[in-house]
Design a protein around this nucleic acid. Structure first.
Lengths: 344, 344
DNA sequence: CATCATACGGCACTCGTTTGCAGTATTTGC
DNA sequence: GCAAATACTGCAAACGAGTGCCGTATGATG
């Protein structure tokens, strides 16, 4: 289906051999052919509406102009933002972004599928297990990879993420300034870098504020979802531990806290303050509007795309790849879910 | 980069010619080769971790196992849902879904780009202008196309959408039953089918309820976004017309109404009831929780994927394509943004 | 006018797979 | 045991574009 116009037809139209047409059409080799001939070929191509066949070209050049992006969950509004940013910067350079969604952060399965079965030129990974290895083909070769929003211990690849440590600092300081001392943390899964880093940051900032972090006030979850937040909040309340604020490791889990607290008649922020992380879309419209750490996801995605592009060109030029790790500055959005602790 | 193991290597490993290996590997042609030989080849392929080269295969068969999906705006949570549904049903059959996001509902530019530059086998279009034509290549050929969530006057392609007429009926009846008589409508853009159909449905249902629809109570917008909803609501209020309820053509525009009404000290639902359409993610958590028409977007996407698959197979078998138009039943979600009109 | 240097265009092979066709084993029937 | 039919398998030609290499045409120069 859809047989488009081929290079030979362009060449015939222009009255030259198709190899000449090929060179004329390719900006990199255009200088080889006579300027007049090139002009003729370009005109013919324009007239016929020639578009190079992407498969044929890819087969020959071994480049598909396609980048794969592995995300855990498109329904979390954070990832469409990441996607949009990356897509914008890649499209500028003629690249396509192919998204593969799948929750399997543990295995590099989805990434591997996208990498091998689609022959992408590079991979932007947003769902890395903290100990995951790079997806490889059986001959142990790999493709240029950029980690975004997540990092790993084990992969030596450039990453673009948020300065989670600073972000947690923002909320902890905010709560401390409000007068809170008994602060709980709903930690993310400890097999994902964000979960680990935010947890460690929470402990560090609490201690540097002279506050305790008793183990019963830190609850770990198995995923950054609303349900996990619910379960964690229930565990927290059922433990009987006293606290006046909850620092959620992301917005969705904080939303889960909202639900459980409401069910039990605990008012936010009057009885308990709640903070999130991400500043996902529409989180400023929930009730009460959530105080959270705003992460520039679009910019993060755009930057990841640019890093990918430099990776691709440096690979072409044979220069040694220089994995850089960038962390973007978040900022605090103070809304209505935080207040001074009630005097008891 | 990423040179994977090739068919010839598998054939060598199995000690057969590579054409034989090809036949053994392809389930459709496997019956041609000797069962023992096939077994040998399969084992060799397994051992070497062979994956067919997608570009080479696509070049030869003229099928890429990739479907393109054109959506207007990934940041509207509705479209990730559509995507997820379609992706799920297509992946089952080994197909990939490549999303192209772009607001250009008017031109089939993005669709055409995705169609020609990526050589997709089919196109799922979720951003059709009501008068748009199918994207074509210069030789006037086109690819199997399924419209989803939108329809057009001009394209004779199968479509999967929501029964908007019935959906609007649900909210209008709901408001009428609450006692509202002066009901306004924030209509979507009239170059998009949803905008037109919901507007017509609003007028029809109002009339069948014996109610008037004065022109000043229907405001059209230029896009299904929050900002457009804001502007429309301002126009509505500034017109001085009296009304006790607003039927928004989608949730985002209804959110825009929330904002303007709040700024002007008009309480929802006490002073004015507001309804949305779509039941997008997290709209049950805004304040007040929005009464809206729930549309099964995931199922819609999944169905679109299945329709696409039947289209592809019917094309193979040469059977005339049978464009069907499916409309999924929505249901009403009554929440806190609607109430009886205040007695004045 | 002859020779050489240069610039340009054409030939042919390549990427990895599918597939029509022909050829060769192998079996079956008599 | 021989012929014919069958069942496999191998050969080679595609698909469309890119590119090293060689031949030729063109120009310049002595």
């Amino acid at each position: 289906m859809l047989s488009s116009v081929t290079l030979r037809e362009v060449a015939d139209e222009a009255g030259v051999h198709y190899s000449t047409a090929s060179r004329a059409l390719n900006p990199a080799t255009r200088s080889i052919v006579n300027a007049k001939t090139a002009k003729k070929v370009l005109a013919a191509a324009e007239r016929l509406g020639y578009r190079p066949h992407p498969l044929a070209r890819g087969l020959r050049t071994n480049r598909t102009l396609t980048i794969g992006m592995a995300v855990p969950d498109l329904l979390n509004p954070v990832f469409p933002q990441l996607y949009a940013g990356a897509e914008a910067s890649l499209r500028d350079q003629g690249y396509w972004l192919l998204v593969g969604a799948g929750d399997d952060c543990g295995t590099p399965k989805s990434a591997s599928r996208i990498l091998i079965d689609q022959h992408v030129d590079g991979l932007i990974v947003a769902n890395a297990h903290i100990h995951s290895t790079l997806p490889q083909n059986p001959t142990n070769q790999t493709a240029p990879t950029v980690l975004v929003n997540r990092t790993t211990d084990t992969i030596d690849a450039p990453s673009v993420a948020c300065d989670d440590h600073a972000g947690i600092g923002l909320v902890v300081r905010h709560l401390v300034e409000l007068g809170h001392t008994d602060i709980a943390h709903i930690a993310g899964p400890q097999f994902i870098s964000n979960g680990v880093i935010r947890r460690q940051a929470f402990v560090a900032w609490m201690h540097s504020s002279g506050l305790e972090t008793p183990p019963e006030l830190i609850v770990e979850t198995d995923g950054f979802h609303i349900d996990e937040g619910r379960r964690a909040c229930e565990r927290l309340l059922d433990s009987g531990a006293r606290f006046t604020a909850i620092v959620g490791a992301n917005d969705l889990m904080a939303l889960g806290c909202y639900d459980v607290l409401a069910e039990r008649g605990i008012r936010v922020p009057h009885d308990v303050s709640v903070t999130g992380f991400d500043d996902m879309a529409y989180i400023d419209r929930v009730h009460p509007a959530m105080t959270t750490v705003s992460v520039p996801f679009y910019e993060m995605g755009a930057l990841a795309g640019e890093v990918m592009l430099t990776l691709l060109t440096s690979e072409d030029s044979g220069a040694g790849t220089l994995p850089t790790s960038t962390r973007l500055r978040p900022h605090l959005e103070v809304r209505d879910s935080t207040a001074p602790p009630a005097v008891s």
